[in-house]
Simulated assay, not measured.
Amino acid sequence: MLSNPYIVKPCTEDVEILFTDDDLLLVNKPAGLLSVPGRHPANKDCLITRVQRQYADARIVHRLDMDTSGIMVLALSADSHRALSQLFAERKIIKEYEANVYGTIIDDHRLIDLPLLCDWPNRPRQKVDFHHGKNAQTWVERVSQHPDGWTRVLLKPVTGRSHQLRVHLAEIGHPILGCEFYAHQRAVSMADRLQLHATKLEFCHPNSGETILGISNCPFQ
Score class of each variant (00 low, 15 high):
192 D>E: 15
129 D>R: 06
78 A>P: 04
195 Q>H: 08
149 G>D: 11
99 A>D: 01
162 S>D: 04
175 P>V: 08
165 L>E: 00
92 K>Y: 06
17 I>P: 00
20 T>W: 07
213 L>Q: 15
62 H>F: 11
96 E>V: 09
85 S>Q: 12
47 L>V: 10
102 Y>N: 04
113 D>I: 06
93 I>S: 05
150 W>G: 00
146 H>S: 14
35 S>I: 01
56 A>G: 04
146 H>M: 12
37 P>N: 04
187 A>E: 03
19 F>K: 03
29 K>S: 09
120 W>Q: 11
64 L>I: 08
149 G>V: 06
75 A>N: 02
101 V>E: 03
176 I>A: 06
183 A>D: 09
22 D>W: 04
110 R>W: 09
32 G>K: 01
139 W>L: 14
186 R>S: 13
157 P>I: 07
185 Q>F: 05
75 A>T: 07
213 L>M: 14
116 L>S: 02
99 A>N: 06
158 V>I: 15
89 A>C: 07
101 V>W: 01
176 I>Y: 02
160 G>N: 11
37 P>F: 03
38 G>V: 02
96 E>P: 04
128 V>G: 08
111 L>S: 08
143 V>C: 13
100 N>D: 15
58 A>R: 00
120 W>L: 14
80 S>F: 08
72 M>L: 15
127 K>H: 08
49 T>G: 03
211 T>C: 11
76 L>E: 09
178 G>K: 08
139 W>F: 15
19 F>H: 07
157 P>G: 10
176 I>H: 05
47 L>R: 01
71 I>P: 00
64 L>A: 01
115 P>H: 02
187 A>G: 02
103 G>A: 11
106 I>N: 10
49 T>V: 13
68 T>C: 12
18 L>V: 07
121 P>A: 12
86 Q>H: 12
144 S>Q: 14
195 Q>F: 04
110 R>V: 14
205 H>F: 09
124 P>W: 09
70 G>W: 00
2 L>W: 10
44 K>I: 12
